[in-house]
Amino acid sequence: MATTTAAKTVIPDSDITCPECGHTETETMPTNACQWFYDCKGCGALLKPKAGDCCVYCSYGTVACPPIQEGDNCCSIEVID
């Protein structure tokens, strides 16, 4: 379910795809922080953001993380790992 803040709709779920094995999993993203690491549920690879991206969802997900969707700078509150 999407939430709306300050006239922006935030999509909380993203399909994250492992670049190693191609496994895709739908995950609910943290709403107030970046997630720098993600363990692939298919092959166990530890995913990290690509250079220039703030989190694994911005690198490998179908939807950017909520802080980016809201137009904020990501990683300003805490890091979820």
Results as ranks from 00 to 15, higher is better:
10 V>P: 00
33 A>W: 01
65 C>R: 01
33 A>R: 02
36 W>A: 13
81 D>K: 10
2 A>C: 11
81 D>G: 09
81 D>V: 07
4 T>P: 03
5 T>D: 11
71 G>I: 02
81 D>E: 13
10 V>M: 00
37 F>W: 07
64 A>T: 11
20 E>R: 13
6 A>P: 01
55 C>G: 03
22 G>R: 04
55 C>I: 02
74 C>S: 14
31 T>P: 09
44 G>Q: 08
46 L>V: 11
63 V>Y: 03
53 D>G: 09
6 A>H: 12
71 G>R: 01
63 V>I: 10
1 M>N: 07
76 S>W: 09
19 P>D: 07
37 F>D: 08
56 V>C: 08
23 H>V: 09
12 P>Q: 01
73 N>Y: 13
50 K>Y: 09
81 D>C: 09
18 C>H: 06
40 C>E: 03
65 C>Y: 00
57 Y>K: 03
35 Q>L: 04
10 V>Y: 00
29 M>E: 02
63 V>H: 07
30 P>L: 05
47 L>D: 02
64 A>R: 04
39 D>N: 12
37 F>M: 10
62 T>C: 05
7 A>G: 11
22 G>V: 04
10 V>W: 00
71 G>M: 03
11 I>Y: 08
26 T>I: 12
55 C>Q: 01
24 T>N: 06
52 G>N: 10
70 E>L: 15
36 W>N: 12
81 D>S: 11
26 T>P: 02
63 V>F: 04
13 D>H: 10
11 I>V: 10
65 C>A: 05
60 Y>D: 01
59 S>G: 05
30 P>D: 12
70 E>V: 03
39 D>H: 12
75 C>W: 00
26 T>L: 12
57 Y>S: 04
77 I>K: 13
80 I>C: 06
57 Y>Q: 06
30 P>W: 05
27 E>K: 14
58 C>T: 07
26 T>A: 14
26 T>R: 15
81 D>L: 10
73 N>K: 14
40 C>D: 02
53 D>T: 12
30 P>I: 04
77 I>S: 13
